[in-house]
Design a protein around this nucleic acid. Structure first.
Length: 507
RNA sequence: GGAGAGGUGACCGAGUGGUUGAAGGUGAUGGUCUCGAAAACCAUUGUACGGGAAACUGUACCGGGGGUUCAAAUCCCUCCCUCUCCGCCA
């Protein structure tokens, strides 16, 4: 919600800035309604002042045992008039609110002008997208082949746009959740686990309602909505509170499933698990001082990027243009991860600064010190990251053999696999524990052992940073880069049929 | 699901129809005292909207909504929430 006083004082200016989003926003009508509301309010105030004053006199008369029937009758009249006016006032307030809630946030001056996503601006790229000289399979094929993704049965259980992760797929999802939460909470984000059902007030506070009801799942017969993002419950943690300025910036991270109707999105990407009615996400939320909010947005975006860097997934960051920026946001960066099967970057995180827009709706304020007036905080949030899409990116970019990564303290061992999974895993573990160097020979041997006819396998590593490298060295493990992978694949001239198994940490 | 008890300012806690925006305490802020601190003492200390250059001032707010009354934190209805006991359940 925008500041009504600001809108009244700078109507033309605000309208011009809003127009950059495209579309029509009738601020004039809102201002007119607000004027009307204030007029009724003033009139009411005067009437009530009169009533209060006279009532006190009646009290005095009563104590003096004097007659007051005449004034009482008069006041009864006034009292009734006041009630009528109160109805008018309630209507006027509702009208103002209804209009105000439908007007989006004003884009920040730094946001590039544009009508649609075509005009978004790429800011930076990280990593080099891997190229294949064959058409890379998409995550769904890979996942189903590996037996870690079972969309057919998900459809049987629920319907289209639901996922069933199985075995190591389920473990990978869980592992990523922990990895993300651990990474963020180590940077000072308080980890929270909020409710997944919220009331209408919370949804209105963050801006999903009233305008975007058709995107939400509402519990039948109840007053609850399924959250479309953790942003909703987490931002509302401090709703209607006045925080101590020294507490800011407050940082939260939360894992939640997210539920979205995806109504009217049937023209869009539907393959696999890219667009789901239910998906998992780790969300970052900040409450900051106004003057810090843009810097906090940069920091939050960097924190989300850090996850992709640690996973070694190529991505780019784009600045959404005015026409593509979300309803409540003043400025948004999208982080897009490279998906080989699509040959393009796909959104995996959206980081926004909502300035005081959500704070005004939710009533989150702060005091700089004991004497100062309360001010609205600024809110920022972003995914860090959408976990389903992270799995997609891992499957497609790495083709899934993951010898080592560091989601957790206990190393993640991953194996070339196997007819008899246990044999291989056990052998592999034994070798690792003996500090035997693992090279291509070994891997080839294992894959033969595993019964793969061509003896080829994909092996790659993700998520290794210098620390992981050191530890891997200590364990005598050779880390294979993406380049190795590619050349190895070339040698076979065709896609290996080998199965891979992930081995994720024991919890 | 059954039976009770509650929801008052940043916090604790009085208040059952009329100068109560709300006693008292705690905390916080400013000051006196002190070399400094503690203690003590004095003062200040809610939010929103409107009027006013300002001092100041009007109105609303004692969980939400409605009602009774000239007048409601106080009486009535209703909804929400919290707590205790019993039952059931992860």
């Amino acid at each position: 919600m925008l500041d009504l006083r600001m809108l009244r004082n700078n109507t033309a200016d605000a309208a011009a800035k809003l127009a950059r989003r495209g579309g029509n926003f009738d601020i004039g009508k809102l201002v007119a309604e607000e004027d009307k509301r204030q007029a009724i309010q003033s009139e009411l105030d005067a009437m009530r002042a009169k009533l209060n004053e006279t009532s006190a006199e009646i009290g005095k008369l009563a104590r003096e045992k004097k007659d007051a029937t005449a004034i009482k009758a008069e006041m009864k009249q006034l009292s009734e008039t006041i009630k009528e006016r109160e109805n008018l006032q309630r209507d006027a307030e509702a009208a103002v609110r209804a209009l105000a809630l439908m007007i989006p946030n004003i884009p920040d001056d730094s946001v590039p002008l544009g009508k649609s996503e075509e005009e978004n601006v790429e800011l930076r790229k990280w990593g080099v997208p891997r190229t294949f000289d064959f058409a890379p399979k998409n995550h769904q094929e890979i996942g189903e082949k590996l037996g870690i993704l079972d969309l057919k049965r998900a459809a049987k259980i629920s319907g289209a746009r639901f996922a069933l992760y199985r075995g190591l797929g389920a473990k990978l999802e869980r592992s990523l959740m922990s990895f993300m939460l651990n990474t963020h909470s180590a940077k000072g984000y308080e980890e929270v686990m909020p409710p997944y059902l919220v009331n209408e007030k919370s949804m209105t506070g963050t801006g999903q309602l009233p305008k975007f009801e058709e995107d939400l799942f509402k519990i039948d017969g109840g007053e609850y909505y399924l959250i479309p993002t953790a942003e909703v419950p987490v931002t509302n943690i401090h709703a209607d509170e006045i925080l101590d300025g020294s507490e800011l910036t407050k940082k939260f991270c939360a894992f939640t499933p997210c539920f979205r109707r995806e109504a009217g999105s049937y023209g869009k990407v539907t393959a696999g698990i890219i667009r789901q009615h239910q998906f998992n996400k780790v969300e970052l939320v900040k409450l900051s001082r106004p003057e810090d909010s843009m810097a906090e947005l940069e920091g939050l975006t960097a924190d989300a990027e850090d996850i992709l860097q640690k996973l070694g997934l190529p991505y780019r960051v784009i600045a959404l243009c005015t026409g593509d920026t979300g309803f409540a946001s003043a400025k948004t960066y999208d982080i897009e991860v490279w998906l080989p099967s699509m040959g393009k970057y796909v959104e995996i995180s959206s980081c926004s600064n909502f300035t005081d827009f959500q704070a005004r709706r939710t009533g989150i304020r702060f005091k700089r010190d004991a004497k100062s007036k309360p001010e609205f905080v600024h809110t920022q949030n972003g995914s860090g990251l959408a976990i389903g899409r992270t799995v997609v990116a891992i499957l497609e970019n790495y083709r899934l053999l993951i010898p080592l990564c560091r989601f957790h303290k206990p190393f993640v061992l991953c194996d070339v696999s196997c007819r008899d999974e246990r044999v291989i895993v056990n052998q592999r573990r034994a070798r690792l524990s003996q500090g035997v160097k693992v090279g291509w020979d070994e891997i080839e041997k294992w894959s033969k052992l595993a019964g793969t006819a061509d003896g080829l396998c994909y092996v790659s590593v993700f998520g290794f940073d210098s620390e992981a490298r050191t530890e891997a060295d200590k364990a005598g493990i050779r880390l294979l880069e993406a380049a190795d992978f590619t050349s190895f694949a070339k040698k076979g001239q065709y896609e290996p049929k080998i199965k891979a198994k992930l081995c994720l940490p024991n919890f």
